[in-house]
Design a protein around this nucleic acid. Sequence first.
DNA 1: AGAAGAATAGACAGATCGGTATACCTCTGT
DNA 2: ACAGAGGTATACCGATCTGTCTATTCTTCT
Lengths: 191, 191
Amino acid sequence: MDKRQQLIHSAFELFYRNGIHAVGINQILQTAGVAKKTLYHHFASKEELIAAVVEYRDEKFYSWLASRLELVKPGYDGLNELFDAVDDWINNRVDLLSDFHGCFFINTCAEFNDPQQPIYQQCQHHKKKINSLIERQIRALGILEPATHHVTDSISLLKEGAIVMAHVQGDLTAANKAKDMAWIVLAAYLS
Amino acid sequence: MDKRQQLIHSAFELFYRNGIHAVGINQILQTAGVAKKTLYHHFASKEELIAAVVEYRDEKFYSWLASRLELVKPGYDGLNELFDAVDDWINNRVDLLSDFHGCFFINTCAEFNDPQQPIYQQCQHHKKKINSLIERQIRALGILEPATHHVTDSISLLKEGAIVMAHVQGDLTAANKAKDMAWIVLAAYLS
DNA sequence: AGAAGAATAGACAGATCGGTATACCTCTGT
DNA sequence: ACAGAGGTATACCGATCTGTCTATTCTTCT
């Protein structure tokens, strides 16, 4: 078991549940069962650890969603799978992603509330990657090319809305509502 | 000028821009131009100040939105106004609300990531109040009663999605996209 | 006039923060 | 066999955190 990975994993769990600024380094060390010297052997600063944690979550979440979408045909099936996946996540049916506490990237942007900051930009980059997964589904539907980006953003908006509704307002059916709306909206574009 | 209000105002501006945990009391005192003793005369702790700041923003935001909705007829006009208001907010055309840095309540839930916490519940309560404004519009549309709550949640989801898209992904047209989707979805319920 | 309340500046306490330093241990590769 | 990398535990540093305390001034009410 790699100590570096252990630190990232423990840090993520604590950050995700309590927020980044509310978690101190000593707490991470205690949880991970790792000495302070070891942390600073792998990372130059807390900031670097945070960056590594964001990257870790990016890879984990993206590869999870991508692999789920690969199980079905792009387009109709893919979009259903997208919202089903979010529904599973919200309702804690995905062990891999830890207990649902909202979107880690939205949460992190809320704490590092400045688009100039590298960590904020990492979060934006993650969202762009997720958007590209959605865009692939939209293209497969045969939507007119000039509308592709607009429709992709609209589906992304529904997905983000579902996550926030589930997190802040506790609506565990939000992903289903978003899915229903997605098909109503898409029908208008496909007619 | 009331010192208590001055503290709340300065604290809000700092919290909204930098996150709550990232802002120290001394920073608030310096910005507000107030002595430490005065702060602890009005508030028992930082926690109490935070609660007062959330309440302050709740009142300010709610009354702003409510008053905008009162200018138009409930129903069709009201829903258009809702998304126009969010669009104005996102694009910094509302001086009253300070520079857009996402939804303060979503951001705060991200930092106090536990539904048991009073501050988290204050944020949930704010969202319920906003939902009631939306529900009034939905009822005026003449939607079948059993669907009212479901449709209200759906519109709320679109609104939250727009805010997050604007904040995290920098899509300043998100509110317009949400408005378009709202009418497509509502048309399906009204037919 | 004089008491009370609200404000000031700033020293101070105790805890915790991120980060460094010291001294020692345990593997592993050549 | 032994050098070096990676690890442990822990003391320590200076800074900063929330919150308390002292001593003094300003304002306001009766």
